[in-house]
C-alpha cells in the first residue's frame, strides 16, 4: 500500500515535471521542472527495486546534467528572465524558427511511435515476471560490468574521453 502510494507520488512528480517543462516559457524554470521530473524517475526506480539505478539517476542526472543545463542556459543567455537582466546578456529568440518546427515534428512522431509500440504490448496482457528480484543489486551490477559487459563499459569510457578532449580543444585559447 505504502509502496503503491510512493509509486503514484513519483509518477505524479514525473508527469507534473515533464508537463511543466513543456509549458513554461522561461527556459531556466524548465530546467528546474526537469529536475523534479528526474527526481520522480529516481523514485520510480526505487519503488521498482532498482536502488543502484535510482542513486545513479540522482548523481548523474539530477546532480550533474541539470546543473550543466542551467550553466549552459545562463552562459548562452537564453532565459526570458535575462531579457531585463542587467548583466548584459541578451535574450536570443530561439523558438518559432523553421528548425524548431522540424525538430518538434520529428520528436512528436518518435513519441507517438514509441507510445503505440508500448500500447501494442498491453493488448496481449501483462504477465508479472517470475522469480524474485535480487536484494543487493549493486554487487551483481558491478560483477556484470567487469565480466559480461566489459567491452561496452570500456567503449563508453572511450566516448567520454573523446568528449573531454573535444571540449578541451574547443575551449583552448587560440595561439597565433
Amino acid at each position: 500500500m505504502f509502496l503503491k502510494f510512493l509509486f503514484i507520488c513519483s509518477s505524479l512528480a514525473v508527469l507534473f515535471g515533464s508537463l511543466m517543462v513543456a509549458c513554461t516559457k522561461d527556459i531556466m524554470h524548465s530546467c528546474i521542472y526537469l529536475f523534479f521530473c528526474l527526481l520522480g524517475v529516481a523514485g520510480l526506480y526505487l519503488t521498482l527495486n532498482a536502488d543502484f539505478v535510482a542513486a545513479t539517476q540522482l548523481v548523474v542526472y539530477a546532480g550533474g546534467i541539470v546543473i550543466l543545463m542551467v550553466f549552459a542556459t545562463m552562459l548562452t543567455g537564453g532565459s526570458a528572465f535575462q531579457a531585463h537582466n542587467k548583466f548584459g546578456f541578451k535574450k536570443i529568440p530561439m523558438m518559432g524558427s523553421r528548425e524548431t518546427y522540424i525538430i518538434g515534428f520529428i520528436s512528436a512522431f518518435l513519441f507517438i511511435a514509441i507510445t503505440f509500440k508500448l500500447l501494442l504490448n498491453l493488448k496481449e496482457g501483462l504477465t508479472p515476471l517470475s522469480g524474485q528480484m535480487p536484494f543487493e543489486t549493486v554487487r551483481i551490477i558491478g560483477h556484470k560490468l567487469v565480466t559480461d559487459h566489459v567491452l561496452p563499459f570500456e567503449i563508453s569510457s572511450v566516448l567520454l574521453l573523446g568528449a573531454l578532449v573535444g571540449a578541451a580543444m574547443i575551449a583552448r585559447p587560440r595561439r597565433g
Binding site: 528546474i32 529536475f35 536502488d51 543502484f52 548523481v59 546543473i67 542551467v70 536484494f135 543487493e136 549493486v138
Partner: peptide, 25 residues
C-alpha cells in the same frame, strides 16, 4: 541502512550545489 548508502549520500548532497547556484542566479 541502504546498501548504496554512500552513493545515495553523494547524490542527494549534489542538490546543495543547485540551491547555491539558483540562489545566486
Amino acid at each position: 541502512d541502504l546498501n548504496i548508502g554512500v552513493f545515495y549520500l553523494l547524490g542527494v548532497a549534489s542538490m546543495v550545489g543547485m540551491g547555491v547556484f539558483l540562489g545566486g542566479y
